[in-house]
Structure formats: C-alpha cells, structure tokens
Design a protein around this nucleic acid. Structure first.
Length: 868
DNA sequence: TCCGCATTAAACATGC
DNA sequence: GGCATGTTTAATGCGG
C-alpha cells in the first residue's frame, strides 16, 4: 500500500492518480481510504477500490457509519493490519461465525436484497407498466434500498436484522428455488435479451458448480459483441460511469481530465506506468481491464447521472443488465473467488448459463458474460505461472510482481511467481503468509517525502541563515550528552531546532557531515557502533573566541582612535573654520598607524575604523538583543504550566529560533540588511515581545504535541513585558516600557489576531525601512560618533552587507543563548546578568560561540585591518 | 582580481 | 548488497 511518502515521492504514482501503490509499511485506514487498497477483508468487502473521490468517500463513510451503528460488525480493526492481524481476524471469524463468509450467506443476502428490490420493482412496474415510468421507479426503489447498499452485503448478512436473515435462510435454503421463484415472479416481465431466454432453457439444469472443473473456454465473444461493447464504452468514455477508464493506455491522461476523472468514481484507474498494482484479480474486458482490489465487486448497469447505487464495474446502460447484475467476492469458506449472479437475466460463466441467484466459483481465466459484455476473470499468479498470455501478463499480471514494493502489499494477490498453488483452493491467509518472507527479504526504503510549498508551515519555508557550523554548534550544545551525539542524533537535533530541515530535501546531511569532519570546532568524542559520537571542541572554540575578541578589541581600538581623530578634526575645524580636508591632512595624523599623505587615506582609514567599530557595536548589539530576548523568554515562560525543565528548555530554544528566523526572514524579504532583531528591539520592543510570545506558544504547542497550546497568555503580554526593559532602553531607545497597547497599534500582531501561536511576519516589515541603517543602537562608547560618521560618510554599502552577516552571527548567538535557557536555572541566571550591558565589556563566551562564519567575519575584519 | 570561506555534491572507504 | 557514516576532493558562489 502506498505510504504517504511513496505516493508523493513517486512521480508516476502521483501522475496516475488514485490508485494503489505498495510500500513496506502499513498505512492508516484513513490513508487507505484515499488509496484504494484494501488492507483488511472487511474493509475490502466494504466497497470498491476507488479513492480520492468525494462521492466514493462519502459512500465509504456511509458504509462505515452503517457498520459502526449496526453493532453487528464488531471487528475492531487496527489502523494498520499486519498479516498476523489478518490471520487473527480470520480466526476470529471462523471461531465465532463459521458461516460468516460462506457463499450461501452472501448469496442469500444478495438474493434477498435483489429479490426485495426486484419485487419492489415488480410491484411498481406492474402498477406503472403502462405509464412508461418503470425506469424511474426502479431508480426510486434502488434509492430506497441504497442505505443497505448491496456492496456491503458481505457484511450485511451479519446485520442486526437477524430475523430477516433467518427468514432469508428459510426462504432460500435452496438457491435454485429462490432463483426459480424470482424468475417466476419475473417471468411476466419482458426479457430484454432473447439470447438469454434461449440459453436459459438449455442450461437450467446445469449444476451450479459445474463450472469449477469445466475446461477453460477460450472462446472469444463475437466480433459484433466486441464492437458493440467497444462502441458503447467509447461512447461513454467521457461519461461519469463508464468502465473505459480502466484502459491502461489512457490512465496517464485520466487524471489530467477532471471530467473523466470525476466521472469514474467507481472505477479504478491503473496504468502500465504504474509500478505496482495491488489487486486480487483482474477482469479482462475487451477494451479495458478492471483490477479486483476489493474482496467484493459489484458488476452491473448504471445509466448516466445515476448515482443512486454503487457499481464497481459499470457495464453500460443496457437494460439487459441489471443494476447489480453480479458480484464477485472472495469466499473465505471455500477460499476462492466466486461470482454470484444477481441480475434477472443471469450470466454466462464459461459459456454455461448461470441463473440469477446462483453462485459459481471463479477460476483463473474463467470467462463470464453479462448481457453482451464478456470478460475474463484472471488470477495473476495463475496467469504468471501458466505463461499463457504474455501480452496480458505485460498488461496486468506482471505489474503485480515486478516491483519489490508490490511484494509488501497487504493484498493477498501476490503469490510467488510460478507458484503452482491454485488460488481457488488457497486460503487467503496462506497467501498472505507466503508473502511475508518477501517483505523481510526486500525492505525498500521509503523515500523522503517531498513537501509541496503549501505543506510547509510558513515559518519553515526558508532556510535558516545560520551556517552549518553554527547550526551544529547550537545543536550539539543543546542536545549533546557528555558522550556526544551520533550523526543521526545531530540530524534530528537540527531538524528539531530548525524545522526547515524537516521539510527541505535531503542533501544538507552531507554538508553536516562535511562540516563535522572539516570544522575543528567539532571533534569525535567516542566511538559508538560504526559511527562516532560528536562533540564540541570547546578549547578550540574558546581559543577562536579569544581571537575574535582580540580582533574585535583591536578593531574597537582603531575605531576609537579614528573617532578621536575625527573629533579632533572637527574641533579643529570648528576652531579654525578652515577647510576640513586640508586640516585633517595636516593635523589629524596622530592616531593613524600609517600617516600618509592625504585625505583618501584618512577616509579609507576612517571607513575601516568605522567598519571595525560598527562590527564591534554590532556584536554588542547582538549580545544586547540576545540578552533582551533571553530576559523576555524567561519572563514569558514564568508560568511553566507544569512543564518539565527539558520541555521548557526546548520551548525556549525553539521559540528563540523561530523568532530569529521570522524576524530575519521578514527583514530579508523586505531587502533589509543589518540586524533586524536589534532594530526591532530598539524600535518596537513590544512587537518583538509579541513575536516572542507567539513563538513561545507555537513552540509550546509543538513540544507538548498540542496539549498546551498557550504557555503565554497573549493578553498579558503588556504586563509581562513591563517586567523587563529592553536592554536598549537605558542606552538609546526612549521606549518607556513596552506595553501591549502600544504594540497593538503598531503591528498586525495582536493578542487575538493570531491566537498566540503564530504571527504574520509581514507585520514586521513596517519596522524595517529599506536600506535603513540597522545600527539603531550602537556602542555607547561610540554612540555619539558612529552615527555621525555614518551620515558624514554617506551610506556605505559594504557596511550594510557586513551587517547582514552579523545578523547571522547574532542568530547563532541567539541559539546559544537559547541553549543557555536549556537549563531553567540558567535562564534565571540570565535574569541576573541581563542588565547593564557595558559596551566595553568583552563578548561573553557563551555569546560568542565559535563558528566558521564568525571566523570568516572576523577574518574579514582582520583583513580589513591588515589592509589598513 | 585574488583569496578565503561556506556550501554543495560527489567519490570513495569503512563498518554494520 | 544496502545503508549509514566518515573522509576527501572539487566546483561554485559570495564577500572581503
């Protein structure tokens, strides 16, 4: 049966529309509902193999409801029914109801139903024969009987109406008698097929089971019959209920034709391109093939737009065919497929007429003719073994064997190729047991599901801006035990931290491995199995951090020197009122490492210094922002609702990652570079708080599997956010205490707008002006100077871009901070350390977790510095 | 333009 | 043999 993955991954499966596929694992009943493949006898008995079609679905639902309410069918089937379960089911059936699946029961019920129906029809038609409304009345009568759709007749005989059943038994102890009576009652009715009339006489005494050992009759229907049927089918091709859809060569286009697709709701479409077809048997018609994918198939007539009854195989509108003319079903008692003739005109089985009400076994290649339409019942394994019709094998049977997936199907159709065992005498469960070893033999990996864009939550559609090393560092910091993490654990950790990787195509794992191997930040801790347990090389990271710190310090010093120089220049300008450039070239050289001739150098140096200063301040911003986020998170999650430390840690981490991702992406989508988080925090901390809160709730819902949807009461955000001032409040922004009211007016994110579990990232855009300098907050030491410099020296695109790099590093720090929040005690600690961000403070270790990106960034700084 | 880094992909080896 | 894991190499793009 097709798993979700298979169905979506397999292009051919998708293109072929609703049809069964196979995989190595069972699927839920819901999935099966959509995939047409019977997994259980009862389910198979329930209806036809169609799926993904509203009507069929409704019908199935109706049947399920009926079965559920009937109280008789008490088999509680698991969602996935393994072979053992199947066997148990059979045992159950045999044990408690010996006759549950006997031919006679089915037959009696069918006859009873058909008899009642026809009786009703007869009565009505007798009354209205002259009015010409017989057809309509028939429809009415069928509509009336539709609640007890005959398609579920196999279950129906277990229906609560036992009295009716016993009555049936009394009345139909002899099928022939019943049949006879019915025929008698109908004898007055006009027979639409004289051919049948003729043959009835000659075959009335034929033993019902004579066909069981009858020689195969390869007689083909007459050319005229074929032609007629072909024309019929052809003419009905675009009708809603024609069997033409089973033509394999048309299957590829079937789905592309909505009209046709919707019209063939009772038919299964299968194609040559389809890798596997799960079916119990096949009905080879002249111009199409029907795959018997359920254990009960209704064959009959259905006129256009007549949806009043269900027909699995529609034989066209010919009145010589009853609406439910025959049913093919698997008889668990005899262990074979049988055909029960319900239609008043009977049918030919291997050229022997079978009266209505009779049931005959179906062997491989048993020929059946209903009305003018012949078909052949084909058991795939038989066909395969006998190698009689290679063409047919190619068409159908081979498909049943050629894919390894097919071997894993729960369908009992697949028998070892070449098996001499006759399915007619082979219990289904034996068949099932037989295929079990194959399943173990060739387990195929289910390819990863490829998600459509719309399947991916909005927030997980974009790749995190973190580098792989940052990703790995974060992941390992968060999830690793002292022993380290296995590769798969790292994969899972990354997926957990950044759900983008749940949805994106594979390939990133290779990069992860590459990073683990190449990046010295990671080391093998210990060996486990065939792989290693990976951990962080904290020494290396710390060393790198120290270097970065040094570089940052050096850059800051340079920036400070440059700033001093600038100030001096300005002072001198102010004093002397002379041309700045001239004076600077003369006087402003003290702070320059390489005093040189001229203004260009000065400007260049100033730029470099500014960059360095900006970097420094940017790092400071990141720390500040992260600190603020930490604080907010701690406050927001004060009420932990009984969640474990671990859960809270997970929530905090995820919420942090979500927030960073969302804000970054929102800014990115608007073409904003720089550090949007800091900008948002400085500009509108209330909004940031709301984003955080929403993220916390989303993460909570995710971590708790929906048990707790809201950890944070969005309506209380204003109160909560008052507890923690933005780290920037004392520095630059003049925000006087974030309140919800303030934020609600600013953004689309309101407490009620998104239910606290999601938010609209686009609402963030208003906080980011395109190309707006992102350094809203700068290092206090440089605070008065840097912005001035920026404006003085025009907009430096390089600065912008370098800042955008910083945003990624900030996210890493973010994640690391989130990691800190792993331990709630730590989070409390962060409360203590949240305040007073001294701009001159060196970056904390925990805020400067090393990664290559940092390296590169700082390396860039170094090169800048060196270039000076 | 060059260089270095990050990313990605591929080939290959190894072990389960 | 299939698969996961790990290593190595190369190509490519980007930013400094």
């Amino acid at each position: 049966m097709g798993s979700e993955s298979v169905m979506s991954d397999n292009g051919s499966s998708e293109s072929a529309g609703p049809k069964p596929a196979t995989s190595d694992h069972t699927i839920s009943s819901n999935e099966r509902l959509n995939q047409n493949v019977p997994s259980t006898p009862s389910e198979s008995l329930r209806g036809s193999p169609e799926a993904n079609e509203p009507m069929r679905h409704r019908q199935s639902q109706k049947e399920e409801d009926y079965l559920a309410t009937s109280g008789e069918l008490k088999l509680e089937l698991p969602d996935t029914l393994e072979h053992e379960d199947f066997s148990k089911l059979l045992e159950f059936s045999e044990k408690h109801d010996d006759d549950l699946f006997t031919t006679q029961e089915i037959l009696r019920h069918a006859i009873h139903e058909a008899g009642a129906e026809d009786q009703s029809i007869e009565n009505l038609s007798t009354e209205l024969r002259d009015t010409g409304l017989e057809h309509n009345d028939e429809e009415k009568s069928e509509i009336n009987t539709s609640p007890k759709d005959s398609q579920s007749s196999a279950q129906d005989y277990g229906h609560e109406n036992e009295k009716a059943v016993s009555d049936i038994k009394k009345e139909t102890t002899s099928p022939r008698r019943t049949s006879f009576e019915i025929n008698q009652s109908e004898s007055s009715r006009e027979q639409s097929s004289h051919t049948f009339d003729d043959r009835i006489k000659g075959t009335a005494s034929v033993p019902l089971n004579s066909g069981e050992e009858s020689p195969k009759n390869e007689q083909e229907p007459s050319a005229t019959t074929i032609l007629e049927k072909g024309n019929l089918l052809q003419s009905k091709r675009h009708d809603s209920l024609t069997p033409v859809m089973f033509q394999q060569h048309e299957l590829l286009t079937a789905q592309a034709d909505p009209h046709r697709d919707s019209g063939n709701q009772d038919n299964v479409m299968l194609s040559d391109e389809q890798p596997t077809i799960s079916a119990y048997a096949r009905l080879d018609f002249q111009s199409f093939t029907f795959y018997v994918q359920t254990l009960h198939v209704i064959i009959g007539r259905r006129s256009e737009n007549d949806f009043s009854h269900k027909v699995d195989v529609n034989l066209g509108p010919s009145k010589s065919i009853s609406r439910r003319h025959a049913q093919i079903f698997y008889n668990f008692g005899t262990g074979r497929f049988e055909v029960s003739v319900i239609g008043k005109n009977g049918a030919f089985v291997d050229d022997i007429f079978v009266e209505r009400g009779n049931t005959v076994p179906l062997k491989n290649k048993t020929k059946v003719q209903i009305g003018q339409i012949p078909f052949q019942f084909v058991l795939p394994e038989q066909e395969k073994a006998e190698q009689i019709h290679p063409a047919e094998q190619e068409k159908g049977s081979s498909q049943l064997h050629k894919s390894p997936d097919a071997q894993k199907s729960e369908s009992p159709v697949r028998v070892e190729p070449g098996s001499s065992r006759s399915p007619e005498t082979q219990p289904v469960k034996q068949v099932l047991k037989k295929q079990a070893p194959r399943k173990e033999k060739k387990p195929t990996k289910v390819p990863k599901k490829v998600y459509a864009l719309e399947e991916i939550p909005q927030e997980y559609r974009t790749k995190p801006t973190l580098s792989y090393s940052a990703l790995l560092t974060t992941c390992i910091r968060k999830y690793s035990s002292p022993k380290g993490m296995t590769l798969s654990e790292i994969y899972n950790g990354i997926r957990e931290l950044f759900p983008y990787y749940k949805y994106c195509p594979d390939g990133w794992q290779s990069s992860v491995r590459h990073n683990l191997s190449l990046n010295k930040s990671f080391r093998k801790v210990s060996k486990e199995g065939k792989g290693w347990l990976w951990g962080l090389d904290e020494e290396y990271i710390a060393e790198r951090e120290r270097q970065k710190k040094k570089q940052a310090e050096a850059a800051a010093a340079k920036a400070a020197a440059a700033q001093r120089r600038l100030e001096q220049q300005q002072q001198q300008r102010a004093k002397k009122g002379t041309i700045p450039g001239t004076m600077s070239s003369i006087n402003g050289t003290s702070a320059l490492p390489k005093p040189n001739n001229g203004k260009p150098q000065n400007i260049s140096q100033t730029l470099a210094a500014n960059r360095a200063a900006d970097k420094n301040s940017s790092m400071d911003d990141h720390q500040r922002t992260m600190k603020y986020l930490q604080e907010q998170l701690v406050v927001l999650t004060r009420d932990r609702k009984g969640l474990s430390k671990q859960a809270i840690a997970s929530i905090l981490t995820q919420a942090l990652a979500m927030t960073i991702n969302q804000v970054s992406q929102a800014a990115k989508s608007k073409g904003i570079t720089g550090n949007p988080l800091t900008a948002l925090m400085d500009k509108n901390p209330q909004h940031l708080n709301l984003i955080l809160a929403a993220a916390v709730n989303a993460a909570t819902s995710k971590v708790t599997n929906g048990k707790i949807k809201q950890l944070v009461d969005m309506s209380q955000i204003s109160d909560i956010t008052k507890h923690v001032k933005p780290a920037s409040a004392g520095r630059k922004t003049t925000t006087s205490g974030p309140t919800y009211k303030a934020s609600s007016g600013n953004g689309s994110l309101g407490p009620g707008s998104k239910g606290g579990s999601s938010f609209d990232p686009t609402s963030l855009s208003r906080f980011f002006q395109p190309r707006q300098p992102s350094r809203v907050a700068t290092s206090p030491a440089l605070e008065p100077a840097v912005p001035q410099k920026r404006f003085l020296e025009d907009n430096d695109e390089e600065e912008e871009s370098s800042d955008s790099d910083e945003s990624s590093s900030s996210e890493e720090e973010n994640s690391d901070d989130g990691d800190d929040s792993d331990d709630t005690d730590d989070t409390d600690d962060t409360d203590d350390t949240a305040e007073n961000e001294d701009p001159d403070d060196e970056p904390r270790d925990n805020g400067t977790n090393g990664d290559d990106k940092h390296d590169s960034q700082h390396r860039g700084d170094v090169t800048d510095d060196n270039s000076e």
